[in-house]
Amino acid sequence: MGVVIIDGSTVRSFVNDETHFHKSVEEAFASLDLNNDGVLSRSELRRAFESLRLIDTHFGVDVATPEEELTQLHDSIFDKFDCDNSGGVDRKEFMNEMRNILEAIADGLGSSPVQMALEDDKGFLKLAVDLEASKVFA
């Protein structure tokens, strides 16, 4: 876990840097595509969200959510990613939705720097901070 200072411009700069953003999304997609078929299935995407524990915790406290409610939530997330309703999420769909998510995070952060604890050293927000730091120290 690391503590970083981040604002919306840091995230937006990362998203707008096509080389770094594209590479990061490709790596994330490859790690999620367990059967290497070039498409994320509903179960592969659900497994990713379950491993992040974004839904089953509330500020570090476990919460019991009924299984059918979790399934509905995961299905709605999958449907958001699966723009062409093909039943799978291809690389382009994944990249577009990750861009949308990160741009929404940037908008939410705004221009005021915030201190944030990040558990994942390979997560997109950490990569955004690392990219910004590399520009400062270059």
Rank of each mutant, 00 (worst) to 15 (best):
M1P: 10
V4I: 14
D7F: 10
G8K: 04
G8H: 05
S9V: 03
R12L: 09
R12K: 09
S13N: 02
S13W: 02
F14R: 04
V15Q: 00
V25G: 06
E26S: 10
E26P: 04
E27P: 09
A28R: 13
A30N: 07
S31A: 11
D33P: 09
D33C: 07
N35D: 14
D37A: 11
G38M: 07
G38A: 08
G38H: 08
V39F: 08
L40E: 06
L40G: 06
S41M: 00
R42Y: 01
R42G: 00
R42C: 02
S43G: 01
E44W: 06
E44K: 02
R47T: 13
R47I: 08
A48G: 03
F49G: 00
E50A: 06
S51H: 09
S51M: 10
L52E: 04
L52Y: 03
R53H: 15
L54W: 10
L54H: 08
I55P: 12
D56I: 14
D56S: 14
D56L: 12
T57M: 09
T57W: 01
H58S: 13
H58D: 13
H58R: 14
F59K: 15
G60W: 04
G60C: 03
V61N: 15
D62M: 05
V63A: 05
V63N: 03
V63K: 07
T65Q: 13
E67P: 05
E68W: 02
E69P: 02
E69W: 08
E69M: 11
L70H: 00
T71P: 01
T71R: 10
H74K: 03
D75W: 07
K80M: 13
F81P: 01
F81T: 00
D82R: 03
D82I: 00
D84E: 07
N85H: 15
N85Y: 14
G87Y: 03
G88V: 02
D90R: 04
R91Q: 13
K92R: 10
E93L: 06
E93K: 06
E93Q: 07
E93F: 06
M95K: 11
N96W: 07
E97C: 06
E97M: 11
E97W: 04
M98V: 13
N100M: 06
N100F: 02
L102G: 10
A104D: 12
I105N: 09
D107L: 09
G110C: 02
G110N: 04
G110S: 04
V114G: 11
V114C: 14
V114T: 15
L118I: 15
L118C: 11
E119I: 12
K122H: 05
G123L: 08
F124G: 07
L125V: 14
K126Y: 02
K126S: 06
K126V: 02
L127K: 04
L127R: 03
L127T: 00
D130G: 06
L131Y: 10
E132K: 05
A133Y: 09
S134C: 14
S134V: 14
K135N: 09
V136Y: 06
A138F: 13
A138V: 12
